[in-house]
Simulated scan of single mutants.
Amino acid sequence: MTVSTGRRTPRADCTAGPGGGITFDLDLGRREDEEAPELLLRLRGAKGKGGDGDTVRLQLSPLRDGRLRAVLPGTLEPAEGRWDVYLREPGAQDGEAVAVEPGIRDLRLLVDQVPPSGRIAVRIPYPTLDGRLAVRCWLRAPHAEAGPVTFDGHGMTVEGTLYGTGLGAGARVEARAPGADGRVLRVPVTGEEGAFAFTLPLDELADGAVTEPRLWTLWLIPGTAEDGPAGGVRISRILDDVWDRKKVFVYPGRGTGEGSRATPCYSTDNDLCVRLEPEPAP
């Protein structure tokens, strides 16, 4: 439950850093002798709401200009997902916290960032569709960052950068169809010094008639002892200031010759996919 505190609607200006840290600055019009509230970051969709793993608590401290500041340190590792931001007044219960609105969001340091080796933490503050402030978090180790996507006939070529491991002799990319019995299309991957590239033949995704849309996911198998999570490394694009590229990055589709059409796309989690669907009627 969310209740009104009788104060102005809290609004936070955010500055995001390349190491995953975020500062939140709020002007709440408070007296200096008032006890400071705290910010709550709640994991959206968490089963155990209010649990230690579902809520991050950030103490607000006064600045000289009268505003209050909270810092989400880059060393903190909240789970991947979307975290909604709330303000909890002193003495109030967590369920009485008030949703925070987005103010100025400074994301300049997220553009063209080069992450350090090891675990990659990316956090982007963004406005939700209903006007609230949220933070999109990713944690990847290793990570395959997608770059340019180009086309040649029925083939789709993807270039990218691999962080946290290298490519071995058995390196490959797998395009996986959904479902327990989904098909897998394997293609070789090339690269050196962190760069990788592969070409996916889009006309091989269709196996007979396609009657409904299917979303193929793309995974990089490094082929080394440090393959990463079981099943490979998800190919995504997260190292910039775009928190949801699904409707931002739009690619042309290609006919597969089987009465279907294959279109590269990004999911709402910024994972690179290929959508296979029936060819639209003329």
Rank of each mutant, 00 (worst) to 15 (best):
I124D: 00
R140M: 13
V149D: 03
L39M: 06
M156V: 08
E279H: 11
N270E: 10
V274H: 03
V187L: 09
P282N: 11
I124T: 08
A46F: 00
V173T: 08
E96Q: 15
L72V: 12
G103Q: 00
V122H: 12
W216T: 06
A177I: 12
P252W: 04
R183H: 14
P142K: 09
D112K: 14
A99Y: 01
G257R: 07
G259L: 07
V111S: 04
L129D: 15
T128F: 00
R176V: 02
P116E: 15
D207V: 08
W138L: 01
T161V: 15
L162Y: 07
D244M: 06
D271K: 04
D271G: 09
R31C: 07
L272C: 00
V173L: 13
D84N: 09
T2M: 12
S4P: 07
E258W: 05
A79P: 02
G153P: 03
L43R: 03
E77S: 15
Y126W: 13
A230W: 12
T55Q: 06
K49Q: 08
R57M: 11
V111W: 09
R172W: 10
G17D: 08
V274Y: 06
A169I: 14
R82S: 10
G51K: 04
Y126S: 06
D52K: 14
L129E: 14
G194V: 04
D13T: 06
G66M: 05
D227G: 12
W219H: 12
R245L: 12
R8Q: 11
G20W: 09
C14T: 04
T128Y: 01
P142W: 00
G179H: 13
T268H: 13
G21C: 09
N270T: 12
V56H: 08
S4G: 15
R245V: 01
R183K: 07
L28M: 02
E204A: 06
S4V: 14
G208F: 08
A180I: 05
S236L: 10
L239V: 00
C273H: 05
L205Q: 09
D33V: 13
D84M: 00
S236C: 11
R44G: 01
D241A: 11
D25I: 00
P252D: 13
A134E: 04
E77C: 14
T190I: 15
G194R: 13
D130W: 04
R140H: 13
S117M: 14
G6P: 11
A195L: 10
D241H: 02
A225Y: 04
A99T: 02
E193V: 08
L26K: 03
G166I: 01
D52N: 15
T211K: 07
K49T: 05
A16W: 07
P280W: 02
C137S: 01
K246E: 14
A281R: 14
S267G: 11
R245Y: 03
R176S: 06
D65V: 02
M1E: 07
A97W: 01
E77R: 15
